[in-house]
Deep mutational scan, measured.
Amino acid sequence: QVNIAPGSLDKALNQYAAHSGFTLSVDASLTRGKQSNGLHGDYDVESGLQQLLDGSGLQVKPLGNNSWTLEP
Rank of each mutant, 00 (worst) to 15 (best):
Q1P: 13
Q1H: 14
Q1E: 12
Q1W: 15
V2I: 11
V2F: 11
N3Y: 14
N3M: 10
N3Q: 10
N3C: 15
N3D: 10
I4Q: 00
A5F: 09
A5S: 11
P6S: 09
P6I: 05
P6V: 05
P6G: 09
P6D: 04
G7V: 05
G7S: 06
G7L: 03
G7I: 06
S8Q: 09
S8L: 09
S8Y: 08
S8P: 15
L9W: 00
L9T: 01
L9C: 05
L9I: 03
D10F: 13
D10L: 12
D10H: 11
D10P: 03
D10Q: 12
K11H: 13
K11M: 13
K11A: 14
K11I: 13
K11N: 13
A12V: 15
A12M: 04
A12Y: 04
A12K: 03
A12G: 03
L13S: 02
L13Y: 02
L13A: 01
L13R: 00
L13T: 01
L13W: 02
L13V: 04
L13M: 03
L13C: 06
L13F: 00
N14T: 13
Q15R: 06
Q15W: 09
Q15C: 11
Q15H: 08
Y16R: 00
Y16C: 07
Y16I: 02
Y16N: 01
A17S: 07
A17F: 03
A18K: 12
H19I: 15
H19Y: 12
H19N: 09
H19A: 13
H19W: 14
H19L: 15
H19R: 06
S20C: 15
S20N: 10
G21M: 07
G21E: 06
G21Q: 07
F22R: 00
F22P: 04
F22N: 02
T23F: 12
T23E: 11
T23N: 10
T23A: 08
L24F: 10
L24R: 00
L24M: 09
L24A: 03
S25V: 15
S25W: 14
S25P: 02
V26E: 04
V26P: 05
V26R: 03
V26N: 05
D27I: 07
D27E: 09
D27Q: 07
A28V: 10
A28P: 15
A28N: 08
S29R: 11
S29D: 13
S29T: 12
S29V: 10
L30C: 12
L30Y: 07
L30T: 05
L30Q: 04
L30A: 06
L30G: 07
T31H: 00
T31K: 01
R32G: 12
R32K: 14
R32Q: 15
R32P: 08
G33I: 00
G33K: 05
G33C: 14
G33A: 03
G33W: 07
K34G: 03
K34T: 03
K34S: 02
K34E: 09
K34D: 06
Q35R: 12
Q35V: 13
S36L: 02
S36R: 00
S36V: 04
N37I: 09
N37E: 08
N37K: 14
G38K: 03
L39R: 01
L39D: 03
L39V: 06
L39T: 03
H40M: 12
H40S: 12
G41L: 03
G41T: 02
G41N: 03
G41R: 01
G41Q: 02
G41S: 02
D42G: 07
D42H: 14
D42V: 14
D42Y: 15
Y43T: 05
Y43N: 02
Y43S: 01
Y43R: 01
Y43I: 04
Y43F: 11
D44A: 07
D44T: 13
V45Q: 06
V45H: 07
E46C: 14
E46A: 11
S47P: 04
S47Q: 11
S47R: 12
S47A: 12
S47E: 12
G48D: 02
G48I: 05
G48R: 00
L49P: 03
L49I: 08
L49W: 05
L49K: 02
L49T: 00
Q50K: 14
Q50Y: 09
Q50I: 13
Q51S: 08
Q51N: 06
Q51V: 13
Q51Y: 09
Q51K: 14
Q51L: 13
Q51P: 01
L52S: 01
L52C: 02
L52E: 01
L52Y: 00
L53I: 13
L53S: 03
D54P: 03
D54S: 14
D54W: 14
S56Y: 05
S56P: 02
S56F: 06
G57R: 04
G57V: 01
G57E: 04
G57W: 04
L58N: 01
L58Y: 03
L58R: 00
L58H: 01
L58I: 06
Q59I: 14
Q59D: 08
Q59G: 08
Q59C: 13
Q59H: 11
Q59W: 09
Q59N: 11
V60C: 13
V60M: 11
V60K: 03
K61M: 07
K61S: 06
P62E: 08
P62W: 14
L63H: 08
L63W: 05
L63M: 10
L63P: 01
L63Q: 07
L63E: 06
L63Y: 07
G64I: 03
G64R: 04
G64F: 04
G64C: 07
G64P: 06
G64A: 06
G64D: 06
G64T: 05
N65R: 07
N65E: 10
N65K: 10
N65V: 09
N65C: 09
N66Q: 05
N66V: 00
S67R: 12
S67Y: 09
S67E: 12
S67T: 14
S67M: 14
W68L: 04
W68P: 02
W68M: 04
T69M: 11
T69L: 14
T69E: 08
T69P: 02
L70R: 03
L70K: 01
L70G: 01
L70E: 01
L70P: 02
E71G: 06
E71A: 09
E71D: 05
E71I: 14
E71V: 15
P72F: 10
P72H: 09
P72Y: 11
P72Q: 10
